[in-house]
Nucleic acid binder design. Structure first.
Lengths: 164, 164
DNA sequence: ACATCTGACTTTCAATTTGCTAGCTATTTG
DNA sequence: CAAATAGCTAGCAAATTGAAAGTCAGATGT
């Protein structure tokens, strides 16, 4: 794995430190996919269209940085492992919310598509991304949040829970 | 300026589109500095330690993407221009807030330093980053927000206002 | 008048990172 | 035993990044 020389490693600015971990073309997308439930190497690869070696590198780096963990599982009798969010990784949700909101406001899709929506499962309504449901005003915990991504599926995805 | 081949350009996912603009090692740091009031080429360069050519490239790209604008000004009788936030650039504040919060929680500084603080100028109190002051519960507009970055200066910075 | 300075870039070129394509390694299924 | 599958690793070319030097236009010093 190629060494990474973070510019602002351990810098006093927390934004700089966050960018050291997340500031490249793939990390945030990997984490976005992890939060909608992707866990396996080839799902990430096929979904993102990222090269194998880069994906392998990014996943390992995110594991090292403590945002993902490898957890073993059995599929067809063989032991494999999947990449699951840790608490630190799951805590990136506000960042993803903010990016989604900004992207919706200030960038546009090539082909006109239904926008992504955040749904509060308890009340069933769409809300803007945040920690409280716009509609029913109650807190919006991760476990009650789903994302509707119409270009992927007509059904909303529940957000992945971090491994404890 | 080298061509940029965004992976998810115009993609339906707003997070992907945001990452197309912001997903590299420098853009978010440039924008962070712009939001605390940096406007000039050499301030960015000296502050970030970024190479000239990369900075030039990033600034131009952010101008093209509509997050910054060049505005002319006069210094020592000569016309120069500075880079100022547009509304789209200023609207990145929630992203910076989220990154700052995450960075504070989940990464650590090399040398122990006073953490960054968000201050509500109206009530004078520190608040967690968001759109409402934790302390006085009133809304926290950008114009009433300042960042205290103790490793840079003992005085808080007011956030830069976008050009209109 | 002339050299120097300064801000904001370009240019050059080497080092690093990315992306493609091809393996490779277990294990299980046919 | 052959093929398939998941998850990598290796090799190499292309793109991006970084350090350093060069450019350019107007100001300033002498």
């Amino acid at each position: 794995m190629p060494p990474r020389q973070p510019r602002s490693a351990g810098a006093p600015c927390p934004i700089g430190r966050a960018v050291d971990v997340l500031g490249d073309r793939w990390s945030l997308l990997v984490l976005r996919n992890a939060t909608v439930g992707v866990t396996r190497f080839d799902q990430f690869r096929d979904d993102l269209g990222i090269a194998d070696n880069i994906l392998s590198n990014r996943l390992n780096r995110l594991v090292e940085s403590g945002l993902l963990t490898k957890v073993p599982y059995r599929d067809d009798g063989r032991t494999r492992h999947e990449y699951r969010l840790t608490t630190a990784g799951a805590d990136l949700l506000p960042v993803l919310h903010a990016l989604a909101h900004w992207g919706e406001q200030h960038t546009s899709s090539a082909e006109p598509a239904e926008p992504m929506q955040v749904i509060h499962l308890t009340c069933g309504h769409t809300t803007s991304p945040g920690d409280r449901c716009d509609h029913c005003k109650r807190p919006l915990p991760r476990s009650e949040e789903a994302w509707l991504r119409p270009w992927q599926s007509p059904d909303p995805f529940r957000l992945a829970e971090p491994v404890t």
